[in-house]
């Protein structure tokens, strides 16, 4: 992979030119953000790599609106740092780690352990700027939290693994951090599995609830198999939730950073190898990248 010619366009226009040029020459481009998702799908027989390395940085952040826009190549770590000082979260927290880019997170639709409460990429992306396989420069969505103007290109592009368009910028919904945020570890046994799951579905609406296998738990210094439960809210709510957790079994509080290790261990989704290629999906690919310039073969489509 590393021996490939790498394009690093500096502007959206240059991205469009690279794509049109590749289409004309019948070449295939492999898209690269931080390079952390390169081996998750099927192999891509690329002629060149198109890096989003030049599209970095936060382009707009209005804390009072809980929205943020950033270049696709911006790392999650950078977004985390920028939002933290305002008591906010970039709520993607995908499986993997924060060296990954926001563009790749949206492009691969990679969710994480808090998605049920904080939202999935497909719900947090308010808009994308991208260039499709025909070189069209698309600005979909807006920096507003509700929007039904026109057909929803943001939804089509999010989670499409770069096979419809190259994302250059994303508009995201943010969340306020809860006043109190605690993570509790509980012994995972057959009897606690059901009760913890019921707790997760209950009124306390925990931010995350993950079962950590015994080998992982040992590596993380948690001893035996554990449930990790993250609760957030005002002090009264968290106190009540804490009481409810303790009623489920022997529980102790752990550092919230444990979640970073959990996310790193989370299996990169095998979704890219089990892609549903029905007639509509093939037509979608055909309409947006007829020459199969972008990530050809990654999703296992029959040529």
């Amino acid at each position: 992979m590393n021996s490939l010619v790498r394009f690093e366009p500096k502007t959206v226009t240059e991205v469009a030119e690279s794509i049109r040029d590749a289409a004309t020459r019948g070449r295939v481009l492999r898209l690269r953000g931080a390079g952390t998702w390169m081996d998750v799908g099927h192999a891509v027989q690329a002629d060149a790599e198109l890096s989003l390395g030049a599209f970095t940085g936060i382009t707009s952040y209005r804390p009072e609106d809980l929205t943020l826009s950033a270049g696709a190549g911006t790392t999650l770590a950078e977004l985390e740092a920028a939002t933290r000082v305002h008591g906010q979260w970039c709520p993607l927290f995908p499986w993997g780690d924060d060296r990954g880019t926001v563009g790749a997170t949206i492009a691969t639709g990679t969710a994480g352990p808090f998605a049920a409460q904080l939202g999935r990429p497909s719900t947090l992306a308010l808009g994308v700027e991208c260039v499709d396989g025909t070189g069209r420069v698309i600005a979909a969505g807006a920096r507003v939290v509700k929007n039904v103007a026109g057909f929803d290109l943001t939804r089509a592009v999010t989670g499409s693994w770069g096979t419809l368009a190259v994302i250059t910028q994303v508009h995201l919904r943010l969340r306020s951090q809860p006043a109190v945020d605690e993570t509790w570890a509980l012994a995972a046994t057959e009897s606690t599995d059901a009760t913890v799951r019921a707790f997760a579905d209950g009124p306390f609406a925990p931010l995350g609830c993950e079962r950590v296998s015994a080998p992982d738990a040992r590596e993380l210094g948690l001893g035996a198999a554990r449930w990790l439960v993250r609760i957030g809210g005002n002090a009264t709510l968290v106190a009540a939730a804490r009481g409810a957790i303790r009623a489920l079994g022997v529980a102790y509080e752990v550092d919230a950073r444990t979640w970073n290790a959990i996310r790193q261990r989370g299996a990169p989704a095998a979704r890219a190898t089990l892609w549903r290629w029905d007639s509509l999906s093939s037509r979608l690919r055909e309409r947006f990248d007829p020459a199969r310039v972008l990530n050809r073969g990654l999703l296992g489509e029959v040529a």
Partner: peptide, 24 residues
């Protein structure tokens, strides 16, 4: 369907065709 949520048969993965359809 949304593509990013596991289906009843355990498979997962696909374009967000439902996301494109809703609001069309």
């Amino acid at each position: 369907d949304r593509g990013d949520v596991a289906r009843d048969d355990g498979t997962q993965g696909g374009y967000d065709l439902l996301g494109a359809f809703v609001g069309s």
